[in-house]
C-alpha cells in the first residue's frame, strides 16, 4: 500500500513539474532571447485561467475553454509586448523588474474589477474525470495523467520547434547575437513579439489546465511564477532543457518533500511535532535544493558561463 502511495506522489510531482515547465519555458525563452526578466508572466497564467473559466461557464465546452486560454494569453502577451515590454529591452534589470511589477498590479486589480474577488471554478469535463487503473493496479486520476501527457507532448513540440524549424533557428540565433540576425534581414521586432506571445500562450495554457484542479482566482500566478524562477535558476537561464530538468526536479522535491519529510520525522519524534517540523522543512525544501545547486554551479545545471 505504501509503495502505491509513493508512486502516486511521484506522479503528482511529475504533473506539478510539467506544469512548472510550461511557465519556465516561456520565461527562459524570453530571458534568453530578449534579455528581459518578466515578473508579469504570472499574470498571463492568470489571464489564461480566467479566460478558460469564463469560456467554460458560457459554452460548457472544456476544449473551447483551453483554446480560449491560449488565444487570450497570447493576445494579452502580444499587446503588453507592443505597448510596454518593447521599451524595456535596452533598460537595466531594475527598470524591467519595476515595469513588470507595475503590470502585475494592473493585471491583478483589472481582473478583480472585471471578475470580482471570489474565486471561479473550472470543472474537469466528464470524459476526463474519474480514476484510471495503471499497470500494477495503481488508481490515478485520469485528468492528472492527461496533464502529464499534454505537458510532455508540448515539451517535445517545443524542442522540435527550436531544433528543426526556421523560427527555431531564428530564436537560437537571437540568443547568441541579436544585432547580427537583424543585419541578416530577420525582422527582430516581430520575432520578439512572437516569442513573447508564445511564452504567454504556454503560461496561459498552464493556468487553464491547473485552474481545473485548483480554484481560479486573482493572485494565483505569482506563487507559480516564483517557483518557475527557482526552476530557471536551477536549470540555467536560457536553456529549455534546463527548464525541463529543473521543473521536474522542483516538482518532485516539493511533492515528495511534503509527503516524506513528516513521515521521516515521525520515526523519531512524536506525531504533532513531526508534522510541524516536517511540513515547515518541506515548505523550504525546494529553496534548499536551489541553494545547493547554486553552491556547486552558480549559473545553474545547464547554464553557460
Amino acid at each position: 500500500m505504501s509503495i502505491i502511495l509513493l508512486i502516486e506522489q511521484v506522479l503528482n510531482g511529475l504533473q506539478f513539474g510539467v506544469m512548472l515547465f510550461l511557465m519556465a519555458a516561456g520565461l527562459t525563452l524570453i530571458f534568453g532571447v530578449m534579455g528581459l526578466i518578466n515578473l508579469a508572466h504570472g499574470s498571463l497564467y492568470m489571464v489564461g485561467a480566467f479566460a478558460a473559466a469564463g469560456t467554460a461557464a458560457a459554452t460548457g465546452s472544456f476544449v473551447l475553454a483551453l483554446a480560449a486560454s491560449l488565444v487570450a494569453a497570447a493576445t494579452a502577451g502580444a499587446i503588453v509586448e507592443l505597448t510596454v515590454i518593447r521599451r524595456l529591452y535596452d533598460r537595466d534589470h531594475l527598470d524591467q523588474v519595476l515595469a513588470t511589477f507595475a503590470l502585475i498590479l494592473i493585471f491583478s486589480e483589472g481582473t478583480r474589477w472585471i471578475f470580482g474577488s471570489f474565486p471561479l471554478f473550472l470543472d474537469i469535463p466528464e470524459y476526463l474525470s474519474g480514476p484510471v487503473t495503471l499497470p500494477g493496479g495503481i488508481e490515478y486520476p485520469l485528468y492528472r495523467l492527461t496533464i502529464i501527457l499534454i505537458g510532455l507532448a508540448i515539451a517535445a513540440g517545443l524542442f522540435a520547434l527550436i531544433a528543426k524549424t526556421r523560427i527555431g533557428i531564428q530564436i537560437r540565433a537571437g540568443e547568441s547575437d541579436r544585432e547580427m540576425i537583424g543585419a541578416l534581414g530577420v525582422n527582430i521586432a516581430r520575432l520578439y513579439t512572437l516569442i513573447f506571445a508564445l511564452g504567454a500562450a504556454l503560461a496561459g495554457f498552464a493556468g487553464a489546465l491547473i485552474g481545473a484542479i485548483q480554484s481560479v482566482q486573482v493572485g494565483m500566478g505569482e506563487p507559480v511564477l516564483i517557483l518557475a524562477f527557482v526552476v530557471i535558476v536551477i536549470g540555467g537561464i536560457g536553456s529549455i532543457k534546463g527548464a525541463l530538468v529543473g521543473a521536474i526536479l522542483v516538482g518532485l522535491t516539493d511533492t515528495l518533500g511534503g509527503f516524506l519529510l513528516p513521515r521521516l520525522f515521525a520515526t523519531f519524534m512524536d506525531a504533532s511535532a513531526a508534522m510541524s517540523v516536517g511540513s515547515a522543512l518541506a515548505a523550504m525544501s525546494i529553496y534548499i535544493l536551489m541553494a545547493g545547486v547554486l553552491l556547486v554551479r552558480p549559473t545553474g545545471l545547464f547554464g553557460g558561463q
Partner: peptide
Amino acid sequence: HIYLGALLL
C-alpha cells in the same frame, strides 16, 4: 492598485 501600477509604469 491599478492607478499605482500605471503611475509606476
